[in-house]
Write a protein that binds this DNA or RNA. Sequence first.
DNA 1: AAAATCACG
DNA 2: ACGTACGTGATTTTA
Length: 885
Amino acid sequence: MTDKRLLLIDGNSIAFRSFFALQNSLSRFTNADGLHTNAIYGFNKMLDIILDNVNPTDALVAFDAGKTTFRTKMYTNYKGGRAKTPSELTEQMPYLRDLLTGYGIKSYELADYEADDIIGTLSLEAEKLGYRVTIVTGDRDLTQLVSDKTTVAVTVKGVTEVEDYTPEHLKEKLGVTPTQVIDLKGLMGDSSDNYPGVTKVGEKTALKLIDQFGSVENLYDHIDDLKQSKMKEHLIEDEDNAFLSKKLATIDRDSPLKIGLDQLEYKGINEEYLIDFYQKMGFKSYLKKFQKSGGLKEVEQTQFQELTKANLDKAMESLGNEVSLYLEMPEKNYHLSSFAGFVIGNDEKWFVSRNVELLKLPTIKDLIENIDVKLNVFDSKRTYVGLNRLEINAQCFNYDVLLQSYLLDTNENSNDLGLLAQQHAYYNVESDADVYGTGAKLSIPDDDQTFFQHLANKGKAIEVLGKALDGELKQNEQDKLYWEIELPLAIVLAKMEISGIRVDSNRLIQMQSEFAERLSEIEGEIYRLAGEEFNINSPKQLGRILFEKMRLPIIKKTKTGYSTAVDVLEKLRGESDIVDDILNYRTISKIQSTYVEGLLKVVHSKDQKIHTTYIQTLTQTGRLSSIEPNLQNIPVRIDEGKKIRQAFVPSKEGWHILSSDYSQIELRVLAHLTGDKNMQEAFIENQDIHASTAVRIFGLKDASEVTPNIRRQAKAVNFGIVYGISDYGLSQNIGISRSDAKKFIETYFQEFPGVKNYVDNIVKVAKEQGYVETISHRRRYLPDINSSNFSQRSFAERTAMNTPIQGSAADIIKIAMIKMQQELESRNLKTKMLLQVHDELIFEVPDEEMNEIKKLVPSVMDSAMKLKVPLKVETSWGNNWYEAK
DNA sequence: AAAATCACG
DNA sequence: ACGTACGTGATTTTA
């Protein structure tokens, strides 16, 4: 006897399972080279679980060798008609072999044979020698191999859960013996392998027949015993098929392998190889395991010295005119965060301290404020704001590694320098998460050595990466984008955040009690109509009331139950008065919780202002985003919500709020990018663009024939074009049939041939180069553009159309903001730029500057970039944001 | 942590 | 036949 345990894995089958299990997150699983990695990741996960369970002494992963096998010779249609394997999976197959090498597991394939046959042959051999065998597959056919020595683990859903088949389990579940699995397949056939079996005989019937006769052979020996039935006719007619199918289903347990059991020893993981592989694949979670076990390559530690008052002057003197600086603010919100310490230095000289007060001392402050000293940082906006809070005014930022990385690839924007460095193949700095912990456990180490070392490593990482990424930006022709737009913008944004916007808290508090009163009224009415009290905020409970208790028609379902979203409720309006009450309740409670109460929470008590944080390195298109709080989605469409804007007031008595917004900027960018003459003409002649679109697509004589409804439809078409149009989307949006929507789009493309041409071309460009660009060479990669998955590919195609439009509009307003800030400063104006809302800039203006500003702002904005059509800017002002509209 | 909903451009 | 409009963030409930 032996205590050997052999693990046999059906490689193709598990790869397929892994791929499809993680198909929804396909786009999240790509490495730096754009290779998809979901199947590899899933395979790895499965391996870990299986190895842990089986603890094998020997192991092998068997793969299918190619398209043709001895089975295709028997039956040409074997596995015919199968959908082609998605290219996203095919490209991963070679790397699976590398993964297995890293795990110390042999992989094997044999011409003319399938993985099943390899597994069948080896398991039989092993059984003879007394091994225990475990077979892992996603294919239940292999259960024909189970025995008292061999278990077959079939994946249930995904790859993490398996069902273990033993002879007993097989009997219990299907009532058959292992060899009868073959008879079963013979009778029922296999649609995925494309062999027929007997007509109209499925699993149920086949099991019944096997229970009765034991085998296909015996069944046909006694076929006359069956009483006359359709089934009997089919059995007789398809006798050949039954035997053929049985043969096809039979695993060859004597295939001519050129590998023997003695070569399958499971050697265990090759750490160095696997770490290298994981780094190539970008598998951070797997890499982490090694870090914990201490197996990861040693981080090269940067030398440092603690900075003190005593050595400060000499230290700064040694640094020259380019330094890297990292100011550690552990909390996310840097307007409020504590300061944990800093590192400053270059080359081999790195100085660290926990005491940020040192930064205020002359030599170091002078260095940072010296316009000739270049500062390399990670996140210049954060650093600027932090230093500003210490009353230090940073002057000359140079490399901002976060910003550079984001411009190179919008997805590489981690706020953790260590993680971001990894994405650029720099490993000599750990992630903050590893050194400081995360969530509730986040804390700066008490131990100086640990903390200082990490800071020093960060300084070095910035120095090395800043230079490297600068080179990459040049290669991509993105250097102007970085130096002339994004880097200067970071400081403009920092100044806007620091200025903040004054909020009249008393106004909000007054609104709070008004809304509270109305909410409780509506609440009472809803409870009365529903006949009971329940949580109106819970879609689940609301769904039960509306669709079960009150029996309103079900319009739409979500993953978890009934949908109660606005578009559904709107259709139910006539059914019961409760619907209107719910809609009202929703509107008001949204305003109350998110805006009235939400904003009150983030007003700084010190200055009665809100200081948002703009995120410059997040969106896929180049827009900004705004958090804590989001000041880019303050209500405006519904008057009740819009009143929130009354609480946004100037910071000084007698000043006004002024707002300027670009009119139709995205359609103007579209007219520019597409070069469409008809569209350009409309803008050059300053026509109402939606009306003129309506004239064209509805074949009207002139604008006088455009009714509001027709204009509304044309407007929806224009939006559709910008979003990457589909007939379905348009039909849903304006409530017309899909075929009508299709006609609209066709007519649109006839009338605007330049647009049609652009749409076709941009998709082609995206497919060829893998990314699209804005006017300023902002880049967005589209890894799914060649996907075999229709919906992923379609999504990528729509984003290919939309991103250059939305992104170029973002470029334009960013340029305008930089010029605007320059003008305000060079003219020594007191006016402050406060907010940006994608196509709109908001200022607070002292009365004496109003005349100048109301001309200056639009003129800077409309001249920000020269397009083939004019840019149009509309301006208004008032005592608060509500009035400035 | 994910899902549902709804606020904005 | 597939299953959709593009880009965001905050709040609440639920698993």
